[in-house]
């Protein structure tokens, strides 16, 4: 079984996000980069399935050479090899990323293509779904449990949806997007980190993938920081709290 995982590098989720002085972009001076948390869940699930079903896990990421460090961190966790599609970060929207991944799918023909449910920078939550549509594949988004049958033909996926948990069955090949409760990602062991340095990262560009149309469908025009909430007060007692709620906020 071959499993592809779309693995994105993002700004550390705990970093304080602020704009550059000219407000043209997010200030990346002195920020740390990490793998998108949802992509870590996607990779972990892929590794577990590969261990059980004798499979191979391949990472795919789109971006410049500076994302190799994050890709290597994914390789250290157990992926066999990686493909990086060379593209300038700033000229990417989720749709172009999806067209890139659909093209990579055609080269690799995996049984499962895993994505994170959303990238915590764009918060777009659409790349996996778009890939599924471009390829005419079934999808299971927001997965919190994935079970592959013994023949490796059907994935039974539990999805976290508003109002409960929904279970659907997909005939492979299929696209699955990972939610955070899917699993607990493992940590890399030192020897594996050393080994990861020797694993292959194949670099492809848009020409290799026959992608000519690089026009963005959604373009960023400007960014702003939301107006901060006016600082409130600390109340000294519950009587004061109830009084303010009743007479000031009129919330009772």
């Amino acid at each position: 079984m071959k499993i592809l995982v779309a693995f994105k590098r993002v700004i550390d989720p705990d970093a304080r996000i602020k704009l550059t002085a000219d407000r043209s972009g997010v200030d990346t001076d002195s920020v740390e980069y990490k793998a998108n948390p949802f992509c870590e869940n996607a990779l972990e699930e892929a590794l577990q399935i590969a261990e059980e079903h004798d499979g191979e896990v391949v990472l795919v990421s789109a971006g410049g050479p500076d994302i190799d460090k994050t890709i290597r961190a994914g390789l250290a966790l157990g992926a066999e090899r990686a493909i990086r599609v060379e593209i300038e970060d700033t000229v990417l929207d989720s749709d172009l990323a999806a067209r890139v991944f659909a093209a990579v799918y055609k080269e690799e023909e995996p049984d499962i293509f895993f994505f994170g449910k959303q990238a915590i920078d764009s918060d777009n939550n659409q790349c996996g779904q778009l890939v599924a549509e471009y390829l005419g594949l079934p999808q299971a988004c927001f997965a919190s449990e994935v079970v592959i049958d013994d023949d490796g033909e059907v994935a039974t996926v539990t999805r976290e949806v508003d109002g409960g948990l929904e279970t659907i069955a997909l005939t492979l090949p299929a696209v699955i997007t990972a939610d955070l409760r899917l699993n607990t990602p493992r940590f890399a062991k030192l020897p594996d980190i050393m080994k990861a340095g020797r694993k292959t990262i194949d670099v492809m560009d848009l020409d290799d993938l026959d992608i000519e149309d690089t026009a963005l469908k959604i373009e960023l025009v400007s960014l702003e920081e939301p107006s901060a909430r006016q600082a409130g007060v600390k109340v000294g007692s519950i009587d004061e709290l109830v009084d303010k709620l009743k007479n000031e906020a009129r919330a009772l």
């Binding site: 996000i17 602020k18 918060d123 469908k217 025009v221 960014l223 702003e224 939301p226």
Partner: peptide, 14 residues
Amino acid sequence: PMYAGNIIATVKAN
């Protein structure tokens, strides 16, 4: 919103 609502983006659909 982007970045957990820390940034509000104005976007254009082409």
